[in-house]
Design a protein around this nucleic acid. Structure first.
Length: 98
DNA sequence: CTAATGACCATTA
DNA sequence: ATAATGGCCATTA
């Protein structure tokens, strides 16, 4: 586990149920404002099902990728009442700061 | 060390 | 409105 991954997970862990954050905002929160792409890579490697990496989406509102499939990601989000239309999450759920 | 990869982003066409 | 492009960065081969 690299330190970068640690920092990412520590932030992602704090996203409350029913809310989502963008890769970009997470990158900013860990102090690497331009590392949003690397954030996605870090989450991709996570195999811990207990961790809620499905709450991280793209900055344009699209749900984005998921290690176990976008379908599953959407299913998980819907299960916690996050409204999704055309693979896009409703703005009201998106958190923009920590 | 260099090169390639990808759960991204903003700009441009 | 959609699609392509160049850039960015941690990790891995």
């Amino acid at each position: 586990m690299t330190r970068f991954q640690q920092r990412v997970y520590n932030i992602v862990k704090r996203i409350p149920r029913g809310k989502v954050a963008t890769y970009k905002v997470v990158a900013r929160a860990i102090g690497n404002p331009r590392a949003m792409r690397a954030v996605g890579n870090a989450l991709n490697k996570n195999r811990d099902k207990r961790m809620s990496c499905h709450r991280v989406i793209r900055s344009d509102g699209m749900v984005g990728g998921f290690a176990r499939g976008t379908k599953e990601k959407i299913r998980l989000l819907r299960s916690e009442k996050v409204m999704i239309i055309n693979k896009k999450a409703a703005v009201k759920h998106i958190i923009s700061k920590f």
